[in-house]
Simulated assay, not measured.
Amino acid sequence: MVIGLTGGIGSGKSTVAKLFSKFNNIIIYNADLEAKKLMNTSTEIKNKLIKEFSEEVYQNNQLNRPFLANIVFNNNKKLNELNSIVHPVVYKHLNDFIQKNTNKDIVYENAILFENKSNLFCDKIITVTAPTKTRIQRVIKRDNSTYKDVEKRINNQWKDSKKIMQSNYVINNLCISDTEKEISRIHNFLTNTKY
């Protein structure tokens, strides 16, 4: 089973994924992490990014993240172009991962699960939510970002209400002990196993 795990920036998806990874029958696939790795290792992605965004997109053979972020978070057309280059390679990588891990349930963590139609890969979907103010504070603390930058990134993602309508489960991630209980409840329900 592939369980999609999504939520806006700062909602706490990675915390939820980490808690799910404690179960023996679950393995995590973090789309963002794998995309970052592939952007530095895939020749196909590198060549297309250089063609689209110039040589400056790589420095010392590593992706120049600030340079690229500055372009795509200020231009929706460029963001869509970036996604159209990276996502097909990530999908192939995910597919290979699913084939190699048929003995486990996969929690597929993806911030833009609906936006890039990755929900079509999933048997069930969990959306993680938190109040916008909390999310912004978390990201500022985590990434040392500015309020304005975080707000811009939030505005580039779907609203929680839209994600919730298409999800099987919702985790309101404010209090860690409540989140843990909800994860156990969902896990038990999905696997019919009591731990």
Rank of each mutant, 00 (worst) to 15 (best):
V2I: 15
T146G: 00
Y58N: 04
K104C: 01
L174N: 15
K104H: 15
I50P: 05
K37F: 10
F53I: 02
F97H: 12
N188Q: 14
D160S: 03
S42A: 08
E109L: 08
G12P: 03
I98C: 04
L113P: 00
A17P: 02
N74M: 10
N64S: 08
I183W: 02
R153M: 04
L19F: 07
G8K: 09
R65T: 06
G8T: 07
Y91L: 15
N95A: 10
L174W: 10
V2R: 05
K100T: 12
T43M: 09
S21C: 05
R185V: 06
V89S: 07
K152L: 00
K159Q: 13
N83W: 05
L79Y: 04
E52H: 09
I26T: 04
K159L: 10
E52I: 04
E52N: 13
I3F: 01
K77L: 14
E115Y: 08
H93K: 15
V170F: 02
N60K: 13
E180H: 07
V86C: 05
L120Y: 12
K159R: 12
K148H: 10
T193N: 14
L174F: 14
K78G: 09
E44R: 10
E55R: 06
E115K: 08
I27N: 08
G4A: 10
L19D: 00
V170T: 15
F20L: 03
G7R: 09
N47E: 14
S184E: 11
E109M: 11
A17L: 07
H93R: 15
K22P: 00
N70V: 05
Q137H: 12
Y91G: 08
T127R: 06
E52C: 10
N168L: 06
I27H: 06
N74H: 15
L174V: 11
L79V: 11
D178E: 14
F114D: 01
N168A: 03
K152M: 01
K159A: 10
D143P: 08
S118Q: 13
K46L: 06
I186L: 06
D96S: 14
N144H: 12
D160F: 02
L63P: 07
S118W: 14
V16S: 03
I154G: 00
K124F: 15
P88S: 09
G7I: 02
T193A: 09
S84D: 14
S118A: 14
Q137S: 15
I176C: 09
K78I: 11
L174P: 06
E56C: 10
Y29I: 07
N168V: 01
